[in-house]
Design a protein around this nucleic acid. Structure first.
Lengths: 318, 318
DNA sequence: TTGAAAGCGCTAACAG
DNA sequence: CTGTTAGCGCTTTCAA
């Protein structure tokens, strides 16, 4: 009835009735039922955001980026966590899609067959984020992790390091770390360098984990002269380990992380790292969805590749 | 019809038809419409989680705690971010409530009048988390930040520090930091000690911010012998600053943070801190909501106060 | 400018 | 065990 028109401020309501309605609804503490609204209008102002984890600092920042732009729109993000498990991704996706969101932002390009099918048939804008090494279902925005690995390899080789070790998360889980590893390996191979050692771990990433991994590798392969970590937090742990043990950084051993975590900016020496453009990825992804719902036009199939900035810091010789 | 029964595995369906339905729905890629379902059943398996921020490590951990228990239930968390702004909280809350969630978990005990009213009239279980210094609307689970401040003050006084400075977030925003500050101040007063200096900041907390604040305070008040920070990240920055500048910790200056962030476990020396029980708070809060929706019984009005564990680490004399 | 009526796609209660 | 029917609280369309 008229009430509905007032509350959604659709025109064609006289000032008098409008005020009457507003007053009454305030007095009754009326909160509209979006469920009924959504059902009737076939429109839901929700965007599903599906990410692997919330506890490693990178996804909270992506979320911040998404929220930033969605706050200037009627859209609201709803997050689902997959814990890097494809079955979980499938479940969460199914759950989310059954709410008929206006769009979905999902991390990664690798999905189970069922997940792909759901995404393809959802009939809403899909943005796959973080990674651009592969074919998106619809749009994608991210960086090339392969290229990130390659660039880092070039920098390491240029600095003259020869015995390089990789320390990172267990591979089957984290496709992006894997791609960086592959990029690194391939690019080093071109320089005639083979990975001297590697160590994979599972579980949370903290300074302590970084220390442990570093100690393990350095004890096992004392001749290693460069440590490439899959994230900044364990790299920072490694750095602290080296400092504590009188290892000259970057002279004796060079170090690099990944992500460009702002939190760690105050480290001394400054860690070599590569900014993964997390917030920007969130911004762009949200913008794509927002545009689609605003004008209803087709903004699908966008491919936005951002360029991670390499920061050599003080832990990589020049 | 029967399809609905199969998909919700309500009994009373023969094996034969059940399989037929399942097969058909899979082939058609059928995803049920929860909106319609929710409207019809007057039940929505969503729990609204309203928190101030996602970028400071504490709330992601609370979220993890919440997800952990909700994963074993039909419930799904939906997060809203307030950026520590009451108006934003009001907006987000209104938005969330209009989806008629099964419960709400909201950070803090301080809310605008409008927010309180909404919460009180929502007719669903409300759990206010993080803080127990005050009166909850319904249930609450958290720690007493006031007491945390008091305990830290006692420890500091016991260690013989006399010139204590507080470094933390700007007050009007963060009630919990304020309560710790007040607890600290009051307890120190009892020992005849007055806060020697304080410095408030706004914006993100990182190592760099910790360094800057610490430098500022130490230059301004060179006689300060203890620095109490409102979070571990800036405390860690302060610690690095002291180490870099040849300040003896904890001899010349003692340091303590707050939160007990696992990420920082590998710091050397180990930071004195207090575990804020973030994950456990998430667990308990989610459990309350889950119980309510499971048995429909009244589990309201619970008050769960957890005890933060003090860890003196190596940056507080003993 | 306002009111009335017809669904949106499901669930719940009941009848077969 | 299975089919039918009547809403859930809105939006939309159409008539007044």
């Amino acid at each position: 009835m008229t009430v509905s028109r007032v509350l959604r401020n659709r025109g064609d309501v006289s000032q008098a009735t409008r005020e009457r309605v507003l007053e009454a609804s305030k007095k009754l503490g009326y909160v509209p039922n979006k469920i009924a609204g959504a059902l009737a209008s076939q429109r839901v102002n929700l965007v599903a955001v599906i990410i692997p984890s919330m506890s490693n600092m990178v996804f909270p920042e992506v979320m911040t980026g998404i929220s930033e732009v969605l706050e200037n729109s009627p859209l609201q993000p709803v997050v689902g966590i997959t814990h890097y498990r494809p079955e979980q991704e499938e479940r969460v996706l199914y759950e989310m899609l059954s709410w008929r969101p206006s769009g979905v932002i999902i991390a990664g390009l690798e999905h189970s067959e069922a997940s792909r099918a759901m995404l393809e048939n959802a009939g809403i804008p899909i943005v796959e984020i973080m990674d651009t090494d592969g074919e998106p279902i619809d749009s994608m925005v991210g960086i090339s992790h392969r290229r990130a690995g390659i660039e880092m390899a070039k920098e390491i080789a240029k600095a003259g390091y020869k015995r390089i070790a990789f320390l990172g998360t267990k591979m089957p889980l984290d496709h992006r770390a894997r791609k960086r590893f592959e990029g690194l390996t391939d690019a080093l191979a071109k320089e005639g360098i083979e990975i001297a050692d590697h160590e994979f771990y599972s579980g949370g990433s903290g300074l302590l984990k970084g220390r442990e991994l570093t100690e393990m590798v350095l004890k096992r392969s004392p001749d290693v002269d460069f440590l490439y970590y899959s994230n900044d937090m364990i790299a920072a742990g490694g750095l602290l380990y080296c400092l504590d043990n009188g290892i000259d950084v970057p002279g004796q051993v060079g170090l690099a992380g990944f992500n460009g975590i702002e939190l760690l900016d105050g480290l001394n020496p400054r860690l070599a790292t590569m900014d993964a453009c997390r917030r920007e990825i969130g911004n762009k992804a949200a913008e794509i969805i927002a545009k689609c719902t605003e004008d209803g036009a087709d903004h699908s199939g966008q491919r936005i590749e951002l360029s991670p900035r390499l920061d050599v810091g003080d832990t990589l010789k020049r």
